[in-house]
Every structure is written in structure tokens, then in C-alpha cells.
Design a protein around this nucleic acid. Sequence first.
DNA 1: TAGTTTTCTTGACTTTAATCAAGGTGCAAA
DNA 2: TTTGCACCTTGATTAAAGTCAAGAAAACTA
Lengths: 184, 184
Amino acid sequence: MDHFYVLPEEDKKQLAALFTESFIRKKNLLIREGDLVDKLYFLESGHLRGFQNRDGEEITVSFIFAPAFFTDLIALRQKTPALVSFQVMEDSRLFAAPFDAIDKFMLSKPTNSLYYLRFLESLNAFYIKRTFSLICDSPEERYLKLLQERPKVIEKLPLRYIAHYLGIKPETLSRIRRRLKESS
Amino acid sequence: MDHFYVLPEEDKKQLAALFTESFIRKKNLLIREGDLVDKLYFLESGHLRGFQNRDGEEITVSFIFAPAFFTDLIALRQKTPALVSFQVMEDSRLFAAPFDAIDKFMLSKPTNSLYYLRFLESLNAFYIKRTFSLICDSPEERYLKLLQERPKVIEKLPLRYIAHYLGIKPETLSRIRRRLKESS
DNA sequence: TAGTTTTCTTGACTTTAATCAAGGTGCAAA
DNA sequence: TTTGCACCTTGATTAAAGTCAAGAAAACTA
């Protein structure tokens, strides 16, 4: 929890007390599309994929690698049904806290919201860059950038998830990989 | 400034005092790609486009419509050169505040950061939805969604900017428009 | 381990968008 | 008002990604 901003020891304890531990088995859903969301999660081990159901097909739109906080922020704040399902890709340990309690914690002291603020800022940076890449770069360029910036994604995840994440079809990614192998 | 969270009158005055007014003429750049950024801006009238230079061509990647806060958040926080140039599309009135001062303001009272926090959350929601649309929707679907969600964009902006924003070429958008006209 | 299922690869073909180039339109400046 | 320029539209062509289908490889299960 020290990635963004280090809270004083005392406040950190107070925050940690809001979370309860749980375990979840491979392939289970943590958030289901359409659910209401009221918790913030911290994934300690394993990784997740987020997907949307489009005409019966599951389109993977995001990945979460431990250790990381996550939730469906849109559903949570706007109190609307979740847009995305989150599926655990291996047996995982995680912590959950009611967001109401987090909000209270943040309001109790100015520095308490700094961590969340930094988290939002970096999430923003990530999605802005991803948007720009989808607009400006070719599928092959997007794949190469992903390879550079998040090599874990490529090592651990099935090709079809990566393809959807990049906005292309699995067959196309398979061909991109072959092209890259041949030309090297 | 009341879109997200209404500050008490006193705090609002304190915040407003951090901003200085300025005017900028049509077509001028407010932030230039490569600049260092240390201010938060509030656009009171007019609208902006953000663009990147790719192989000599200006690719429009974002629009800002008054009234709205904006800055290059990535450049600002990571103290890296701006990724995007911001150009005013008509003579505009705006306000600027050093971000250092904003940070101090936020740290002086827990509720002072709430507005910024809501701003970040809604910016996030916006870019997440845009990313998903770029992944899942066809160019025509993306155009129709934009038409629905931000009709101002379509009314006021040149076709080629809208096309780049949607990740397609101007010729393609021109053809999409014709198709839609014919089929209605 | 053997067998089953899922995922990946590959080829042939179709669809879609990009590119290139020409002509038209409309706005802006003189 | 006229002229010039920037922008948009359109058609012909090319390039790229999508689709469909079959077979190979890998992963899971009994």
C-alpha cells in the first residue's frame, strides 16, 4: 500500500482495520456485470481480468495484477450497475472494505485522502495513454507498447484476452506475433 | 465550479484567490507539447482541442468545453514534458492557478480536496468509457455515441478533428455521415 | 497417462477502412 | 465583392483487419 503515498503508521493501521480478508477460487467472479458495487478491493495475490458481455461474447477490457487496489469506480460513485465483470484468474487472496468507511476515513484528516488521490491520478494517466494509443497507433504498435510496459501481461495471459484488450481479434494478434518472429 | 462538490463560501473564496484571470486569442496554444506544466486552468468561455504531433500531422485527441477545469495531469504530476498541445478554438477567457498552491489548499482541510477528488473520478469514468468504446464499438457506433453524449462537439467542431478524436480518417467520417443521411 | 476440451494457428476469402487524387464548397481576407 | 485558401466530399484503388473453417497444440480432467 505504499506505492503512491506513505501514510503515517497510526493512520495506516486505522485504514487497514476497515478491510476484511477473503479468498476466492480461480475463475470465480468478484464483481458481476449489472451488480451494484459498494466496496473497494485490494488484490494481494493473483490477477484478474475485467470483461464485458457484448452480443454473448466476453470481451476482456482490463487486467489487474496484484498487489493492487481496484473496484468499478463508475458503478460505485454513480450508484449504477457495474459495467464490467471481474474474474479471478487464479486462486487469490484479497481484502475488501466498504467504500462508505473509506470516505469517512478520508474526511477525518487532510492527508488521509492523498493516497486515494494519487491512485486516481495514476489511473487517469493510464487510461489517457491507453486512449491515445488506441487512436493513434496500429495494432502492432499497441502490442509492442504493451509488451514493453507490462511484460507480465504477455507472459501470463491467454492470447485471446490480450487481443481483445488491444481492440483486435485473436487471429490478428496471432498473425502479428508470427510477423514479429519472422522479422527478427 | 459547483458541478462536483459545493465548497462552503469561505473556502471557495480562498480557492478563487489562487486563480489569475487571462485572455487568449483564437488558435493560440495554451500548453505546448514538450512544455513543463505547473498550473491548473479553468476555461470560462470558448473551447479547446488537445492534439499530438505524429509524423508531422496534428492528431486531435481531446476537447474541452467551457466551463471546465483542465490541465495536462500526467505532465504536471510526473514532472514530464506535456504529451499534448492545447489550442484555443475561439477567443477565450480563462483562469490559472499554480498547482502547488492548490495542493496546499487541499491539505489545509479535509473537505477541500473533495472537489478535486470528484473531478478526478468523473474524468476517470469518462476515459474508461472512451477506452471501452474504442475497443468494442465500430467507427459508426462511436460516432453515434458521441453525437448522443456530446452534441456540442458535433455542432461546433470541424469534421477532421472529430474524425481523429474517434480514431478514424476524415474521409471515413465523411462517408459515415453520408450513409447515415441516406438511411434516414 | 489417456482422452477430452479448449485455445491457438493457419489459409482462403470478405469486409472495412486507409490512401491517393480530383473537384467542389464555403469561409475569410483583401 | 472577388479571390484564395482551407476544408470537405467523392470515386477508384490498395492495404489491413475481420470472418469462417479446419487442423495442430496445449491444457485440463478423470
